[in-house]
Simulated assay, not measured.
Amino acid sequence: MKLTLSISTCPNDTFMFDAMIHGRIDTEGLEFDLTLCDIEQLNAAALSTAADITKLSYAVVPEVLDRYKILRSGSALGRGNGPLLVSRHKIYPDELSDARIAIPGEHTTANRLLGLLYPAAADKRAYLFSDIAEAVLSDECDAGVLIHEGRFTYRDKGLRLIADLGEEWEKRTALPLPLGAIAVSRRIAPDTQRTVDRVLRRSIAFAFENPAASAGFVRQYARELSEEVTRQHIELFVNAYSFDLGEEGRRAVVQLLELENEEAFV
């Protein structure tokens, strides 16, 4: 059975999915027609079309729950890995109402979190996530929300931290921060949904046990060419919650998205 699969080009996704895409593990008869995109492109596609399996920002999940369920494996969720709000010139959090803020897309979890924590920050402008640092450095924007590799390199570029949004979330909730999810279409039979979840978990386990196997695939799509930054990215965003959300991970998702129940999950 062949399923369409859409994931991001970020190292955490290519690391986790490498083994199942390239047949390094038992996929239980499943094959995958792969598309790789920026996260906001994936979010937009999920709102208008329907890949069988897709990466999503958790923020967009409520809008697609009529068509998708969230896998228990594959999430980018954890502690100390949230988006960073940065600036070139010193800005205090209570000054954000007057700031032009670059965000990595309207439907991203980063944007949802910014709105929850700093509702006065209303002047938001969408950029490709990899262009946000430059938008701030060039004074197109006063501040920017960095995700992915940007959190590891912003100081080297001369940017300063206004707030760690993930840290603020953890202080308020004592829960890990849900960032990205892997969703499977509800049109697929429940048994196959569970197979996809099982195969992805197997792929993640293989990646942890054989990190060199995915190195070429990860490097092919990584926007940051530094192997050290790529390694840090994977170590931060692929963790025990990626293998299985568990009870705490599900509670975090329910709270972030204000869900009434857990029917969102496979």
Rank of each mutant, 00 (worst) to 15 (best):
T14W: 09
L56K: 10
G74C: 05
E31C: 05
F17P: 00
E31V: 01
E140A: 12
T54Q: 06
D38P: 02
R24S: 12
A102D: 07
A59N: 02
Q41V: 13
A133C: 10
S48M: 11
G82W: 06
L56N: 13
S138W: 02
I53T: 03
V64W: 06
V61W: 01
R125C: 01
P93F: 08
A50I: 00
L42E: 10
D66E: 15
S87H: 01
R100Q: 06
H107G: 03
N81E: 11
G29K: 10
K124Y: 00
D33F: 07
P83N: 07
R100F: 10
L114I: 05
S87W: 12
D139E: 15
D52S: 09
A45M: 13
R100T: 12
R112L: 15
F17W: 14
G115Q: 12
A133K: 09
G29T: 09
L47A: 09
M20L: 15
D38I: 10
R72K: 12
R24K: 15
L116N: 07
A120K: 13
N81C: 14
I101K: 03
A46E: 05
Y92P: 00
D13F: 13
A51F: 12
L34Q: 04
A76H: 00
L84Y: 14
L36E: 11
Y58I: 00
